[in-house]
Design a protein around this nucleic acid. Structure first.
Lengths: 198, 198
DNA sequence: GCATGGTATATCGGGCTGATATATGACGGC
DNA sequence: GCCGTCATATATCAGCCCGATATACCATGC
């Protein structure tokens, strides 16, 4: 599922400009995909060239016209096929966890900052989820998958936040004991925690 | 944190070849980063050119020699600096959740497959975590961050698996009611679930 | 009247993924 | 002893994507 397919999928819910799509990805899809303008605009241009979307430009004097994109029948068909064939992968990329893995190389203050920022970020995501839930409860619909996906996100985020809260203190104190930074240089690369075992 | 920094970080635990590093990423770092040979080998070559790692080649007759890389003092310093400055981002990219968001466009059988495969994948990850835990409990060490990160992974994965198990059936039956595929083409792109609101 | 932030399109370099190619040793089964 | 399969090990490349940046205007509030 590349950005082109993502755009087709979003357009099944109605016409939109590139800007609209970015916002849509940032809100509705925020916890499982990202796409920047640098991917969206070229994607839309290619899709238009392939006849999978049509583009209706609304001229605005003095600046580039707003371009509304609409899914064509071929575009809808293409998306359905992609959707059926796509392998449902799920990957996490986290400098957050990577940093904590190296807790023994970081000052405790930095660890605190990292943990607190992540907890705060999770809380922001949870409250924006709650807003989305209220909105879709009013309008009483949206795709059936939306509720499921939102519930999944809430569950996972809540579990993550609780874990961080509970184990925050333990990590900071433990890392303080095992510290290994510039001031106590312990500089052997040949520690007993080797990687290769040949 | 790009692949070059990742390699430096892994090499703080001991010397390794490119192949060793890949395995290390796949096991220890598996739930928060990925790196293929296509990134690792060029990264090591650049690091060697910059003097951040040194390379000791063990010749083997008839094929390319095994290249063991070792962190230099400069490399260790560089990694510590990067680690301190890195913004601890955390992103999820999931065709799995994306597919489920479009549950109303998928046949129930496909939904079942997707859910079951994901649950099975989570269970595989959990049991490989458990193995890692047993191993590091025997040797009674590893970086202090390791336990924390592993605990985080277990917590989140368990919460995800339980959610999927509990809500599996509800999603499949609900999507069956709201189905909207080729057989009932409902082809208006101008549904009331529009994206833009200008 | 002016600064801030939102709307909107577009480009580009650097970087990564995933597939592919190549070669050989080790191991177990038959 | 032979064969297939798996693990070891390095390397390249096309296609794709992220993040930063540039431009331009309007609405809002202070």
């Amino acid at each position: 599922m590349n950005v082109k397919d993502l755009c087709l999928g979003a357009l099944t819910f109605g016409d939109a400009s590139g800007y609209d799509l970015k916002k849509f990805f940032e809100t509705t899809f925020s916890h499982f995909c990202v796409a920047g303008y640098g991917s969206i605009y070229p994607a839309l241009a290619e899709l238009a060239a392939e006849g999978l979307v049509s583009c209706h430009e609304q001229p605005r004097q003095g600046r580039p016209g707003r371009k509304l994109y609409q899914l064509t029948a071929a575009g809808r068909k293409t998306f359905l096929q992609k959707l059926k064939k796509t392998a449902p992968r799920h990957t996490v990329k986290s400098d957050f966890l990577l940093s904590l893995y190296f807790a023994h190389l970081l000052p405790p203050q930095r660890l605190e900052t990292i943990l607190d920022e992540r907890i705060a970020a999770i809380e922001r995501q949870l409250s924006s989820h709650a807003q989305g839930k209220r909105r879709s409860a009013q309008e009483d619909d949206g795709p059936v998958g939306e509720k499921f996906v939102r519930g999944f996100g809430e569950t996972v985020l809540t579990a993550a936040r609780d874990y961080l809260r509970v184990h925050r203190h333990a990590l900071i104190t433990a890392s303080d004991l095992h510290r290994q930074d510039k001031k106590s240089p312990c500089r052997g690369n040949h520690s007993r925690h080797g990687i290769h075992n040949s």
